[in-house]
Design a protein around this nucleic acid. Structure first.
Lengths: 232, 232
DNA sequence: CAGACATTGGTGGCCTAGCCAATAGGTCAA
DNA sequence: TTGACCTATTGGCTAGGCCACCAATGTCTG
């Protein structure tokens, strides 16, 4: 190889790994690959792309940083669905544990999300929300705290809003929210109260009442807020 | 180390390049390096970090993707002036131009931000807001569209909210907002209307009325929304 | 002397070759 | 069935080398 000197350089100082990364993403969407699907082994991919393993590795690092794939030692390279956008999370955590900040951000995002969900939810969305509600209920009756159901519920509502940007932002702070969530649900009787709050939100969304949904969500987040603030 | 058996799941899959990247960033902030400053040559850095050049190269790719450094062939590795998190921007833009999504996200964030600003603004914050207002006014009277003043105003309000997480999120979508902003202010008479809206927001913030500030901001964002939607 | 050109040292880009380490899945004995 | 073990497969990382690029310096020419 290496007859590239022939071309007058398309103005771009494109690094090889960038081209490789683009080809890979193109290949992914072309093949319609989804989260969990595997990329070919590095050695094979490298030869089929006509680059060295080192360069391919750089491309994979780039894709990993962006959050497109997850490279697993000894296993393979797997497509990621929920990109690891932990940058913000890390930044915040590194600075200081600021629970109130998280509450504020959550309130801002989820209130709007609830309102949008009330307007846009499809029957499928309502099913998901209901399923999450039932899961949480079952867990609590069994003595659990309903943490997983709680998370499912909020994710279902977020998806029902059908707003990619807001969903992305929720994903970014989801990890921070999780911490406050666990704390909140650890309070006695809190799970039941929380469940009731969820039901109220779900009802408003189901009935298409955006204002009521927003209000219910706001109240719910504030409830969690109280608890979180107690620990200071 | 390596007593990770303590935790059932964590399973530390730290890739070498990640550690290297962290060490480099640590070294950067430790040395207080700024944009334009140079990192040591790869070979030197590699040996001093005790890794191969290939691994160091991966770390640099990661940092390049994040936007911390720019690697220049034949010249060296230079710190970038934009430690930005353009991930979202890129992701959205790559997918499709979704103006409505931006409006929604902006509404969610800025409504909350306005409310917080009303409660937390310091005298300095009010000064900044007022200065932005005046700048926009002067620009418009001079026949301009007040784009810069508009941006200044929203940034000042965001800072007045004193909420790092929300501020971070605003930064992330600021570029997307800018596009809609320019479009909106291109409409005849829109600059004046927009200025009036800003004044209303500023007054509410100054008087400490959170609800009024939120309502005013919401109305303002919706105004922009109308315009943006017109172009479809 | 001034400007164009060639040289050179330093830097990153990319490759080849190879060994190490983790994982999954099979085999076989208890 | 269960558990320990083996092994093929796959990624992780290193070493060493050659090439391309850039900037500064030196050199030649007009």
């Amino acid at each position: 190889m290496s007859e590239s000197a022939r071309f007058p350089r398309p103005l771009q100082r494109t690094r090889l790994y960038e081209q490789v990364a683009e080809q890979i993403t193109a290949w992914i969407s072309e093949k319609g690959l989804k989260a969990g699907d595997r990329l070919p082994p590095e050695r094979q991919l490298a030869t089929s792309l006509g680059v060295s393993r080192a360069t391919l590795s750089q491309a994979l690092v780039a894709l990993e940083v962006i959050g497109v794939v997850a490279v697993r030692h000894g296993d393979g390279t797997v497509l990621t669905d929920k990109p690891r956008v932990e940058r913000i999370t890390d930044a915040i955590r590194a600075h200081a544990e600021r629970i109130p900040d998280v509450i504020e951000a959550r309130d801002a995002l989820e209130t709007k999300i609830a309102a949008l969900a009330a307007q846009r939810r499809t029957p499928e969305d309502l099913e998901h929300i209901d399923a999450a509600l039932k899961a949480m209920e079952a867990d609590i009756e069994g003595g659990g705290r309903g943490v997983q159901g709680d998370e499912l519920f909020h994710r279902a509502v977020t998806e029902a809003a059908h707003s990619p940007l807001l969903e992305q932002m929720m994903t970014e702070i989801s990890e921070l929210i999780r911490e406050t969530r666990i704390e909140s649900l650890s309070q006695p009787d809190r799970p039941k109260t929380s469940l009731a709050g969820h039901q109220k939100i779900a009802d408003a969304i189901a009935s298409g009442d955006a204002e009521a949904a927003a209000a219910a969500m706001h109240g719910h987040v504030m409830l969690v807020s109280d608890v979180a603030l107690l620990r200071d």
